[in-house]
C-alpha cells in the first residue's frame, strides 16, 4: 500500500480487546447464536467450534482485506461468501481428518459456520475497510471472544449435564446429570443466565460510575 485514500487509525490494544469484551459477538452483539446453542453441550465441542470459527474468521478477514480495493461493491457479498465457504470447507476436512469423534459431534454445524453472521459481519464492516494487519488483529479478537463465550456455555452445560469437564468426571459416580442441560433448551437457559450475569455486572459498574461522578461534583 503506497497511498491511503482514507486516514487509517493505528492499531491499539482495543482493536484486539473489543471483540473479547465490549463487542463480544455472543454476549453483547448476540450474533452466531445458532452454533452457540447447538454445539455447546460439551467443553470440547465448544473449543472445537470456537477454534474452527476463529480460523475461518482469520482466513476470510485476511483475504477480504487483501482484496478490498479490487472487489467491486456490486459483487462483494458473493465474493465474501465464496471466500468464507472456502475456509469453511478447509476447516471441515481438517476436523474430519483430525478427529472423527469431534466431527460427528459437531455434525452439520461445521458447514453452517458459513452462515455465521459474525464472520460475514466482520468481512463487511471491518476487513473490507481496514489494513490487513489491523483486520487480522480484530478478527483474532473476535474469534477469541467467540471461543470464550462458547467455552462459558460449554463448561457450564457439561458440568451440569454430564458431571464432567473436558471428559473428566468431577463428582464421582453418584452424580445425577441434568439431562436438560445437554439438550437444546439447556443452551437457551445457560445463554440467558450468562446474559443476565453480564448485564447485571454492567449495570452495577454504571451505577458505581454514576455515584463516583456525583461524589466528584458534589463538593465542587
Amino acid at each position: 500500500m503506497t497511498y491511503q485514500p482514507r486516514k487509517q487509525k493505528p492499531i491499539t490494544p482495543d482493536t484486539f480487546l473489543r471483540g473479547i469484551w465490549r463487542e463480544n459477538p455472543v454476549f453483547v452483539m448476540l450474533l452466531g447464536l445458532c452454533p452457540t446453542l447447538a454445539v455447546t453441550n460439551s467443553t470440547i465441542n465448544a473449543i472445537g467450534m470456537g477454534l474452527a470459527t476463529t480460523f475461518v474468521l482469520l482466513g476470510s478477514s485476511l483475504l477480504v482485506s487483501l482484496l478490498r480495493n479490487l472487489i467491486p461493491k456490486q459483487v462483494r457479498i458473493a465474493s465474501y461468501i465464496v471466500i468464507i465457504a472456502t475456509f469453511v470447507t478447509i476447516v471441515d476436512y481438517a476436523i474430519h481428518a483430525l478427529s472423527l469423534e469431534l466431527y460427528n459431534a459437531l455434525g452439520a454445524f461445521i458447514q453452517l459456520i458459513v452462515a455465521n453472521c459474525v464472520i460475514l459481519g466482520r468481512a463487511e464492516s471491518y476487513a473490507s475497510k481496514n489494513r490487513i494487519t489491523k483486520s487480522l488483529v480484530n478478527a483474532l479478537g473476535m474469534g477469541v471472544g467467540f471461543t470464550f463465550a462458547l467455552l462459558c456455555l460449554g463448561s457450564v452445560r457439561e458440568i451440569l449435564g454430564s458431571g464432567t469437564l473436558l471428559g473428566f468426571p468431577l463428582f464421582g459416580d453418584s452424580f445425577q446429570p441434568w439431562v436438560v442441560m445437554i439438550l437444546p433448551p439447556g443452551g437457551f437457559f445457560v445463554t440467558g443466565a450468562w446474559l443476565l450475569l453480564f448485564s447485571w455486572l454492567q449495570e452495577r459498574r454504571q451505577r458505581k460510575a454514576a455515584k463516583e461522578e456525583e461524589a466528584i461534583h458534589a463538593p465542587g
Binding site: Q176, W178, V179, V180, M181, L183, P185
Partner: peptide, 10 residues
Amino acid sequence: AFVQAAFPVA
C-alpha cells in the same frame, strides 16, 4: 417442566 426435562427418570 424443567425437572421433567432434567431428570426424566426420577
